[in-house]
Amino acid sequence: MAEKVRTLIVDDSAIMRKLIVDILKKDPEIEIIGQAVNGKEAIEKAKVLKPDVITLDIEMPEMDGISALKILKKELPQTKIIMFSSLTQEGAKATIEALSLGAYDFVPKPSTKSFLESVKKIENDLLPKIKGITSSKEIKSFKITPSQKLLKPGLFRILGIGVSTGGPQTLIEIFKGIPKNFPSPILIVQHMPPLFTKQLADRLDKISPLQVKEAEDGEAIKEGVVYIAPGDYHMEVVKENTQKYIKLHQGPPVNNCRPAVDVLFNSLAEIYNGSSLVLILTGMGRDGAEGAKKVKLKGGGVIAQDAQTSVVFGMPRAVIEAGLADEVLSLSEIPKRLRELFRCY
């Protein structure tokens, strides 16, 4: 029998703590080992209890979640921390900061407008994220043999990126290594709700020499600009004469996601044919696998992040096991390889 995921709950609200407890008690694979009411108490209890997972509120008295996160990442680097965030602009900004500091993932807090619906969404979000931590431990030794088709530099005119859990810190590391003279557009689908994608774009724009922005419907796609799909909108590329444009829409979720990586990758395959390169990064599930297959059928290239550097190896693993990955790279290898393939140094 697999070991239970030992979880510490941290929130200054007794109501919120009870809500999380009630949700986690539904799953026999999760064990609640303690509760704390602020960041200071969380650090003290975590040092003693050594949890696998901490659910950590951002806004708390005495010591907030961001301050606690910084200490916990140093003291207990193996513990995965899931942030709870309010659905506000400030909450989204703080959450992106937490994710860039190494938080595992986040869950939006319930809104007063639709409390019961929000509680159900928390349950649907939180349980898989906690249980995904256990599976991520098991796949770090996953060995693969890529398709051995070494991609050739100079063939690609656009880069598509699909990413989910662990995305912000992974994207930050990649974009630190992408130079200002990168010659092609970059389109990103990061699984995130509205508000959060705008804050992610702003954070990446600050650390990258490239312009990074949240995509807008109908805007012309420009070389050297990075476009992030807005939360709750699929993003595609469409073509009119020789000009290519962003198309945003709220079609049905794909792989339970909107935005979905498959939607973006399918459009890149159709519009760019063999000149599209797609990159599958850390994330739960298999979103991006079908789109990567279409890119390959059209002659494009596929790169997947390896197991050892993925926070969660779901999305890259789906692509690799389907035999779609031309190259499998560690996080540190990806920026250098992109510079080579797009011939920019």
Score class of each variant (00 low, 15 high):
residue 28 P to F: 04
residue 183 P to F: 04
residue 104 Y to S: 03
residue 89 Q to P: 02
residue 51 P to N: 10
residue 282 T to P: 10
residue 302 V to L: 13
residue 110 P to F: 13
residue 161 I to H: 02
residue 262 D to E: 03
residue 283 G to Q: 10
residue 92 A to E: 00
residue 224 G to H: 09
residue 288 G to F: 12
residue 263 V to M: 09
residue 85 S to K: 00
residue 54 I to V: 15
residue 155 L to M: 13
residue 2 A to M: 06
residue 233 Y to R: 10
residue 77 P to W: 06
residue 137 K to P: 06
residue 150 L to C: 08
residue 15 I to P: 05
residue 171 L to E: 02
residue 62 E to V: 06
residue 1 M to K: 15
residue 165 T to M: 13
residue 89 Q to V: 11
residue 138 E to W: 10
residue 25 K to T: 09
residue 112 T to F: 11
residue 145 T to Y: 13
residue 95 T to W: 00
residue 305 Q to W: 07
residue 146 P to N: 08
residue 16 M to C: 13
residue 54 I to R: 01
residue 242 T to I: 13
residue 166 G to E: 11
residue 86 S to T: 15
residue 328 V to C: 13
residue 198 K to M: 02
residue 190 Q to G: 10
residue 300 G to T: 04
residue 67 S to E: 08
residue 338 L to M: 07
residue 306 D to E: 13
residue 50 K to D: 04
residue 50 K to A: 03
residue 217 D to R: 09
residue 48 V to R: 14
residue 298 K to C: 04
residue 74 K to Q: 15
residue 204 L to W: 02
residue 145 T to R: 14
residue 180 K to L: 12
residue 339 R to L: 07
residue 141 S to W: 12
residue 304 A to Q: 12
residue 300 G to D: 01
residue 8 L to S: 01
residue 39 G to A: 08
residue 332 S to I: 15
residue 101 L to H: 07
residue 151 L to P: 12
residue 253 P to V: 09
residue 310 S to I: 06
residue 42 A to T: 03
residue 202 D to P: 00
residue 139 I to H: 11
residue 318 A to R: 09
residue 232 D to R: 02
residue 250 Q to V: 02
residue 26 K to I: 11
residue 128 P to Y: 03
residue 199 Q to D: 05
residue 176 K to S: 11
residue 322 A to M: 05
residue 231 G to M: 12
residue 173 E to G: 07
residue 175 F to H: 04
residue 270 E to A: 11
residue 161 I to L: 01
residue 139 I to Q: 10
residue 148 Q to W: 01
residue 47 K to W: 06
residue 28 P to Y: 08
